[in-house]
Amino acid sequence: MSPLADLQRQVAGAILGGGPSDMPALAPSPISAGAAFAVHRDTVLSGLAGALRLTFPTVGALVGVAFFDQMALAFVAEQPPRRANLAAYGEGFPDFINRYPHAASLTYLGDVARLDLAVAQALGKPDKDIRREVVLDEAIRLSLPVSLTAFALHSPADLIRDGVEAEDDQALAAINLSSRPRWFAVWRDGRAASVQPLNPAAGLFLHAVLAGAGADAALEAATTDTGPAAALLVLQTEVFAARFAQIIQAPPEEIQP
């Protein structure tokens, strides 16, 4: 390792580790090494906590700045950022929250973080008119926004997010926190993200096709907990006729042998 790279490892370690100050590489200065390192440490840690607050606004509103920052700094210590694009930092934060002992009583918090993350990721992608097509069969393709994701949560994170955004404490207090799988579709719609709850059959189908499954495999996934007839009815209303979807029928010449 070059002398410069070695020095930078020492400085980075001192900043993240909270130390300085007795580094022989430092020269005497009017500002003590401890004070100087404290400035850099504050800048780094407040910057990272701030970046996480921007990505996880509902979590931040629920737990308050002090708790959030404490949790964020524990996450930073475990999973520091690897890239300068801090908007993409925090993918592991929801799982970290689920393991964070001080948040153990907030059983819904990890799911709220997952929904916050999905919204932030959708906002970081092209708008809904930039689409990808999924071939369902020879004659039909399903056109979906490239920003679309479908995933399941066990807590009513959408209701919690709505209540926090509306600052409606009564609505928040009335939420039933009982645990059961809930599916969601999230996609970018202009300068906002749309969050739509889905029937499990629709969620399983979308999740499968977005993961690259063919129509048959996706349909099989959709019927895991639902009979074929009921699942098809759900797909018709919650996928094929959904706001985010368009059905494209291939022109006859494209399907002729």
């Binding site: 070059s2 002398p3 410069l4 790279a5 980075a12 850099h40 300068a84």
Partner: peptide, 24 residues
């Protein structure tokens, strides 16, 4: 500099003003 050992620190960290640093 901001990156060392594969970790990005969102700050503008100081350099020693050496010939090596100049070259880098």
């Amino acid at each position: 500099w901001s990156t060392s050992g594969g970790v990005h620190l969102p700050d503008l960290l100081p350099l020693p003003y050496t010939e090596e640093a100049l070259s880098v």
